Simulated assay, not measured.
Amino acid sequence: MNLGSLFRLSAFTTTLNGGNPAGVWIGDTLPDPETMQRIAAEVGFSETAFVAPASGSDRIVRYYSPEVEVSFCGHATIATGVVLGENDGEGTYQLATSVGIVPVTVHQRDGKYEASLTSVEPSYAPAPHALVIKALSALGWIQDDLDGSIPPARAYAGAWHLVLAVAEQQCLAELNYDFETLKALMLRDSLTTLQLIWRESATVFHSRNPFPIGGIVEDPATGSAAAALGGYLRASELVTVPTTILIRQGEAIGRPSQIVVHIPVRGGIVVTGQAIHI
């Protein structure tokens, strides 16, 4: 039996009361899907990463929420990078995920390990009007709440997210959505989270991320959505590249998180954060 080792960390934070908790399971071979799903449900965090050696790549990784397998998870990848750095040293690890190879570079900063993932090639498409209207209804928002300078989009960097930008921060602060209605809508449209954002300045964004398909009301830090947003902003020429933005997330639910997103001229989006054991 492949027992493996299970670690629990919080990513995109340096304090125990912040960030997004993730499980990181490391063993010689991956368990079968049913076992991975069971372990993820027992851990109870929004995602658990399962990591094992793989031929042709440094590691093979799969991600599970308490209810379903997820194609890619940014915060669990950052947590995985920190564990690999602690166990095997600084350097770049090639992670073979179900959506492609994701390099993760790990180094120490002020005595703590920091990890930077480079996403698969991002893409986006304007969000269909019908999807936007249904999402707004589930969120209790109206069309006039949206920021017209950042049009609604379906954005991808390993997983699909619906990006909705609001004109006023109050909309984010007062978020209270219909869980089952939004879950059903997201399942029909193959969405992993909603990336709900308010742009404070050219380089600072605030985000909230409903994650009902994973059985989670809200993600405190969502690296995959951060990468998808970076790709969307670049492709839509809503930022001048190269640039680096900061996404502040989790503050409204008492788990403040900071996600640093570097948007290069081309290629994958680089998402950086630290993680601590909990």
Rank of each mutant, 00 (worst) to 15 (best):
E121C: 10
A127E: 05
V166K: 07
A115L: 09
R154T: 13
D147L: 08
S201M: 04
T181P: 11
E47C: 02
R234A: 03
Y177T: 05
G44W: 09
L172K: 06
G267T: 05
V61D: 01
T13M: 09
P33Q: 13
T193D: 03
T35H: 12
L146V: 07
I197D: 03
H262W: 04
V132E: 04
S123M: 12
E90Q: 10
R234G: 01
Y113V: 03
L162Q: 07
G231S: 08
G85P: 02
W25T: 05
Y113N: 06
V104S: 00
H161D: 12
D110P: 02
E69R: 13
L30E: 05
N87Y: 11
E121P: 06
A157D: 07
A115G: 08
H277A: 11
L30S: 03
S98D: 09
S123I: 00
W25R: 08
S71G: 10
G81A: 10
L9K: 00
S55H: 13
D145R: 10
L233N: 00
I26H: 08
T77I: 08
V241R: 14
M36Y: 08
S119E: 04
V106W: 03
A49K: 02
P53G: 01
Q274S: 13
P33Y: 09
I263Q: 00
S57R: 13
F72G: 05
A227I: 09
P103C: 10
E42Y: 14
I101S: 11
S201N: 10
W141N: 04
M186L: 11
P66W: 07
L229C: 07
Q249V: 06
E237F: 12
L117C: 02
R255N: 01
P66T: 08
E90M: 05
G56I: 09
G85T: 04
H206P: 04
A159C: 12
P122H: 06
L246K: 13
A40M: 11
P242D: 00
Q249N: 08
A52W: 01
A252I: 12
M36R: 15
T15V: 15
G267F: 05
V241L: 09
I253M: 15
S57I: 00
S5V: 15
A184K: 14
A275E: 01
A159N: 15
R59F: 15
W160H: 13
G100I: 02
Y93L: 09
L136T: 07
E168L: 12
R8P: 00
H262S: 14
L139M: 06
A155F: 09
E42D: 15
G223I: 00
T181L: 15
R38Q: 09
L16D: 15
V270S: 03
S98N: 09
G44S: 09
R188K: 13
R62K: 13
S149A: 15
S46G: 05
G23P: 04
P151L: 12
A54R: 15
V204S: 11
S207C: 14
T97C: 10
D28I: 02
W141K: 06
H277I: 07
A125N: 14
S65K: 00
I259S: 05
F179S: 10
L182D: 02
R208D: 07
R234T: 03
Q169K: 15
N2Y: 07
D144Q: 12
S98H: 10
S257G: 03
E114I: 14
H161N: 06
T15E: 15
H206S: 13
P220M: 03
A157N: 07
Q169F: 08
H75Y: 03
Y177I: 02
Y64M: 06
Q37G: 14
L146I: 08
L187V: 13
G140P: 08
E121D: 12
G100Y: 03
